[in-house]
């Protein structure tokens, strides 16, 4: 068994009377492409939000590389090596594509106000490294030719890829992708699948939420199914597809 990178134990998230996530246990092993699926409103994005510190868990523990991170702020968690994209794209819309990616480099750089004003020798070198790293990931996601466009002028699929670039540029240990292919056409999906495999091969562990079953089943090594905030099962794509509880969760939702 490989090392457990992220470990959720008994994680519960409540919004007033609504329990979005209920006593969730979940392990993400290093080096995997891991998926979380479930019907609409199952609590998938809430899991991402609680792992990245946007919400605090009502109860439970979240350990990343052995250290407790539940209740830390998003900026602390980013520094520890977790990067993410958002289901409802959250780009810096009025900024150029390149600047969007440079912001993602924040945890890997240091310069502050005084550095910006007085530009000591290290400043230029750091800016150059930031630019180089940003151009490299833009090339990786196929957006290098769009680097000077404003983010809001990109197509939907391009915006999703820009979010991935912005997350990748921080050299994360764990990459969370919330519905990365939503709104993409088949060609874009195929390309993105290749890209995600490529990212995993670079040593980044990928944890994704996705509704596109064909995509998830083809890509992931291990899948956890969530329904009404509760874990139904975890297993390989074949195991999950054969599980009657999973079929019921999806069918029950679609019919009702």
């Amino acid at each position: 068994m490989s090392e457990v990178l992220l470990e959720l134990r008994g994680v519960t998230v409540r919004f007033g009377g609504l329990t979005a996530v209920h006593e969730l246990d979940l392990n993400i092993e290093r080096g995997m492409i891991r998926a979380l699926i479930g019907p609409n409103g199952a609590g998938k994005s809430t899991v991402f939000n609680v792992v990245t510190g946007i919400y605090r868990p009502t109860a439970g523990s979240i350990r990343f590389r052995g250290e407790e991170i539940a209740g830390l702020n998003p900026y602390h968690i980013a520094y520890r090596g977790i990067a993410r994209t958002f289901q409802n794209i959250r780009l810096f819309k009025n900024s150029p594509v390149l600047d969007n990616v440079k912001v993602g480099r924040h945890p890997r750089s240091k310069s502050n106000v005084l550095g910006a004003l007085f530009r000591p020798p290290g400043f230029k070198a750091e800016e150059r490294r930031t630019t180089e790293a940003s151009l490299k990931v833009l090339d990786l996601v196929g957006l290098l030719h769009k680097k000077d466009e404003l983010a809001k002028n990109l197509s939907y699929g391009e915006q999703r890829r820009l979010e991935i670039a912005r997350a990748l540029v921080s050299d994360p240990v764990l990459l969370l992708l919330d519905e990365p292919v939503a709104g993409m056409n088949p060609q874009e999906k195929a390309k993105l699948m290749e890209l995600i495999r490529n990212i995993r091969d670079r040593g980044v562990t990928v944890f994704l939420v996705e509704h596109d079953m064909k995509f998830v089943m083809a890509l992931s090594e291990k899948i956890t199914v969530l329904d009404y905030g509760r874990k139904i099962c975890t297993g390989t794509p074949d195991e999950v597809q054969a599980d009657p509880r999973v079929i019921e969760a999806y069918l029950g939702k679609e019919v009702g």
């Binding site: 990245t52 510190g53 946007i54 702020n73 998003p74 900026y75 968690i77 980013a78 520094y79 990067a83 993410r84 958002f86 959250r90 780009l91 810096f92 819309k93 009025n94 900024s95 600047d99 440079k102 912001v103 993602g104 480099r105 924040h106 945890p107 750089s109 240091k110 310069s111 502050n112 106000v113 550095g115 910006a116 004003l117 530009r119 400043f123 750091e126 800016e127 930031t130 912005r166 921080s170």
Partner: peptide, 26 residues
């Protein structure tokens, strides 16, 4: 100079989307 630096980019990121900015370590 401030605007064309890590500091300035962080400020613009906050203006554009504070939650996303915080998830970038800001």
């Amino acid at each position: 100079r401030l605007q064309n630096s890590r500091f300035g980019r962080a400020l613009v990121a906050i203006r554009e989307d504070e939650i996303a900015a915080e998830c970038m370590g800001i």
